[in-house]
Amino acid sequence: MKDQEQGKMIRADAIEQAANRIMSNAAIDIPEDYLSGIRAMIDTEKGDLSAFVLEAMLENWQAASEDRRPMCADSGLPRYYVKSGNEARLEGGFVELEHRLRRATAQATHDIPLRPNRVHPITRQDNNNNVGMNAPEIEYSFEPDADWIDITTVHKGGLFGSDYRMLFPGDGIDGIKRFFLDVLLAFGKRGLACQPAIVGVGLGGSKDTCMMLGKQAACLRTVGSNHPQAEVAKLEGELQELGNRTGLGAMGFKGTSTVVGCNIEVGYTHTGGMPMSVHCFCLSSRRATARLHGDGSVEYRTDPQWFTPYMRRNSVGWDGGAGAVAGAAE
């Protein structure tokens, strides 16, 4: 019995190996959904400079994959999202998991190589391995009736393109649209946001939840995905269309290529408020996921599948997903 249980345990070495591989996949290979989105944008882009930029990016992604070198030198702030099945058992538990993810970060930084971006905010001291106090971030979520763990790494760079604002219910959809435009105009000029971006919007929650949801919407959902709730999905479409009407194209040159996808995530919020955050996942939208099973098998993919029906549940209990999101559009 004990042997059988241990056979189902996810080994720490396997975690470290998978983490090293997704670090490299993320840094080098552009996800297919993002690539398809950009190809479609080139076809409709009338601005020659903006289209030239996008064509150069296609060439760049090809060079990155051929040479096995990072697509961008600002390899961002590598971080992890771990989704653990409720039945998953890890060798050494989560403390060992975190140790292995930190080790993989340092190793991958040297081997790929990534830029060691992480420094102390005041002394600017650099450990030269992208590891430090509170770095890399590791966020967790859980999944019922599963014995696997998903490890996703996201390398998001960019000092430009994110913002937060407390709106109020009376500000309505107008307020949301205005703030969305404010952020794109503030950071889209000269292409500082490295657009076309997957623009993630967090609506609701408390301030920290709002930032977290918006960032996860940008980094953990694919181009072309829709929120299951009809009202939210409709707004995603409207914001994408609005964002591509600003006149800004790639690098801020005149054009129509700013928002390759708009993903909104919502959280129930204070009755008096409507907090909103906006995040731009850039021309190097780097994410990669590994699923590790207890039997030792590992699968790799580029869609993190982070927002499951369980995560978006609206009920007290969990009924297996039948009423996951009220008013869900199917």
Binding site: F52, V53, L54, A56, M57, E59, N60, W61, A63, A64, D67, R69, P70, M71, C72, A73, D74, G191, C194, A250, M251, C282, L283, S284
Partner: peptide
């Protein structure tokens, strides 16, 4: 001179 796209890191690396 501006780099293109921000960025064509692999092409510049070559």
């Amino acid at each position: 001179l501006t780099t293109v796209g921000y960025g064509t890191g692999a092409l510049l690396g070559r």
